[in-house]
């Protein structure tokens, strides 16, 4: 305790315990988890998601969505409420995050959990409307508007197929339409890919568990 070397060795050894348990072990074991084949179709689980969703993950990171939203359905031995509330059909496990570059587990739920939002809200149009004007879609929502991910452009002849169908309070002025930028499309593609409803060996059955409604 009274020589630097003794103190340092003691500190090193003690630090090593948590480092081994929480850094080395996860990196070497959980970090080496591989996809498993689906019993029915042979496809790989978790499913691979496309390039747009991969780009969308970076938007999710840079916009700081993790500051308000979590992405984990808790184990039922701790609480069943995540599942009963319709935020997932089974608890999340480490393998669910295999395809992500960053695990956005989150620590606070100012907004809802998003781990299964692609299952709960499978329509891209809803997400575009919601990102553009959250308060118009979910009354009383505190989510900030992401209208800077969209462009307001003059309607050229005919309305574009991609234009958002907005409610009157959020609609653009007459003669204008709201179009999603590539960032918005990527982000929504990522959100739609978020479904942890496939079965995994460590994750329990998904049969007979009712689906969720928009909540």
């Amino acid at each position: 305790m009274h020589r630097l070397t003794t103190l340092l060795s003691g500190i090193f050894l003690v630090f090593l315990t948590s480092w081994i348990g929480l850094v080395a072990y996860p990196a070497l074991q959980l970090g080496k988890l591989a996809p498993v084949p689906d019993a029915d179709s042979g496809a790989s689980l978790p499913p691979v998601y496309g390039g747009e969703a991969v780009a969308g993950q970076h938007i999710y990171a840079s916009e700081g969505c993790v500051s308000c939203h979590s992405q984990q359905v808790r184990q039922t031995s701790v609480t069943r409420i995540d599942i009963e509330r319709g935020w997932g059909v089974r608890p999340s496990v480490a393998r669910d995050y295999l395809r992500d570059s960053t695990a956005f587990l989150g620590t606070i739920r100012i907004g809802q959990d998003l781990s299964n939002v692609g299952r709960r809200l499978p329509e891209a149009a809803w997400h575009y409307r919601h990102l553009y004007a959250p308060a118009a879609v979910s009354e009383g929502s505190v989510m900030p508007s992401y209208r800077y991910l969209f462009t307001l452009s003059k309607i050229q002849g005919q309305r574009s197929a991609e234009a958002l169908d907005l409610s009157p309070e959020a609609a653009p002025p007459a003669g204008y339409e709201v179009l999603p930028t590539a960032d918005a499309k990527n982000l929504v593609a990522y959100l739609l890919s978020l479904k942890h409803d496939y079965p995994l060996p460590e994750a329990g059955p998904v049969k007979n568990i009712p689906a969720a409604v928009t909540h």
Binding site: L22, P26, G31, K32, S101, A103
Partner: peptide
Amino acid sequence: VQASAQGPI
């Protein structure tokens, strides 16, 4: 590291 390990870290 692979995202499945990032939670504990």
